[in-house]
């Protein structure tokens, strides 16, 4: 009956956009966390730097990353639209209003989301922007494939042409941008660590509501699967994943 723009300008359509972009961002969190676990590997960042290179250069991933950036933008912009519309729906506020029956985070998604957006901007400018266009240091790894021992050497920009990884005489040589070092350095700053931990707390609260809410929006409330969704929402997305991410700055800070 109506075309897509009509659909997505309805309250339900906007809700659907929030839901789909939100779920996509959730799925990204899993990938991001899994990859970043390599930070904990005691290899002077070899695995992490390989992973960083793969993520930024493998074409399908690049396509997905653009989807991701636009999801963040759309999710934020629609959140703004929805908030404005919802504020307009009640021009005179109550003198007294209870929050009975709702959880705090469900009523404060905007605040939590804003914290997360600030975090994402700062996070991307420290790492993503620096990695692509900033002055990231370079590193060379020489791994003896027989003994498994790796020698790590920092190299200068003149020694680095492009990312390479090859085997020569039983030695695997990898030259790469050293994002790992960047991370290790940044996370020695207490205020940054605090900010990251706070942001992960916000994410936890954002997702304890957001994840199950997305399924409610999709209309997926079958009594058989609803408990599973709630379980995943709480244990995976608002406990495990935020803890996993928060552990990284803490790890480097106390290392």
């Amino acid at each position: 009956m109506s075309n897509f723009s009509n659909t997505f300008s309805s309250t339900l359509g906007k809700k659907l956009i929030m839901c789909l972009t939100g779920l996509f961002l959730c799925s990204f969190l899993i990938v991001h966390l899994t990859g970043n676990l390599s930070l904990f590997k005691n290899d002077e960042g070899l695995a992490f730097n390989q992973y960083a290179h793969f993520m930024t250069n493998f074409t399908p991933i690049k396509v997905v990353s653009y989807l991701l950036y636009s999801s963040i933008i759309i999710h934020s912009v629609f959140a703004l639209f929805i908030t404005i519309q919802n504020k307009k729906a009640r021009p005179v506020a109550y003198a007294q209003k209870s929050g009975n029956g709702s959880i705090w985070s469900s009523r404060n998604m905007g605040v939590l989301g804003t914290i997360l957006l600030l975090f994402i901007v700062s996070h991307m400018s420290s790492f993503w922007y620096e990695y692509h266009w900033g002055e990231t240091p370079y590193v060379k790894y020489e791994t003896d494939l027989n003994t498994g021992k790796t020698i790590t050497t920092e190299i200068s920009a003149s020694d680095y042409i492009e990312y390479v990884s090859y085997v020569n005489n039983g030695i695997e040589i990898t030259k790469s941008k050293n994002l790992y070092k960047e991370v290790a350095t940044e996370f020695k700053e207490w205020y940054l660590v605090a900010f990251y931990v706070l942001a992960m707390l916000a994410m936890s609260f954002h997702l304890v509501h957001g994840f199950q809410s997305a399924f409610q929006t999709l209309g997926w409330d079958h009594s058989k699967y609803k408990p599973l969704i709630n379980f995943i929402g709480v244990w995976v997305f608002s406990i495990l994943i935020p803890i996993g991410f928060a552990a990284m700055p803490l790890y480097f800070f106390f290392k």
């Binding site: 906007k14 809700k15 919802n86 029956g101 709702s102 929006t217 209309g219 409330d221």
Partner: peptide
């Protein structure tokens, strides 16, 4: 001019007839 639903579920808690938010999921 009604606002949009953000799934806070306060409606269900305050409904004198205890209408469930599963209705909202169904409408979606």
């Amino acid at each position: 001019g009604f606002g949009g639903c953000t799934n806070t579920y306060q409606c269900e808690a305050e409904c004198p007839k205890e209408i469930k938010v599963t209705n909202i999921a169904r409408m979606n």
